[in-house]
């Protein structure tokens, strides 16, 4: 499983999305389950899946799934296929 697939699977599980709903372009405001507890779950999901301890302010600042990917890229995780 590539890192991109791993990230997608984690986001689908955290936000209870259908596979067909998923897109990295998805914005926070478009995901009804991206609530305050969802922010906590996302931070835990990032740590579980990629080993990066996401600080609360970082998790709060994420506005899209693309933001999650870019945060992890900045931490040295490659999403090049």
């Amino acid at each position: 499983m590539s890192n991109r697939e791993k990230l997608q699977a984690m986001l689908v599980s955290v936000f209870l999305l259908e596979e067909s709903e998923f897109s990295f372009a998805r914005q926070r405001g478009e995901v009804d389950t991206w609530d305050s507890l969802g922010v906590v779950a996302l931070a835990v999901g990032i740590e579980e899946s990629f080993g990066y301890h996401c600080r609360p302010e970082e998790a709060n600042a994420l506005r899209s799934f693309q933001d999650v990917l870019e945060l992890l890229e900045r931490k040295g995780i490659s999403f090049v296929e």
């Binding site: 209870l16 009804d32 389950t33 609530d35 507890l37 969802g38 779950a41």
Partner: peptide
């Protein structure tokens, strides 16, 4: 089951 949870209940 997860689909029903999302449809009918908030995360808490």
């Amino acid at each position: 089951i997860l689909r029903l949870l999302r449809a009918h209940f908030t995360r808490s």
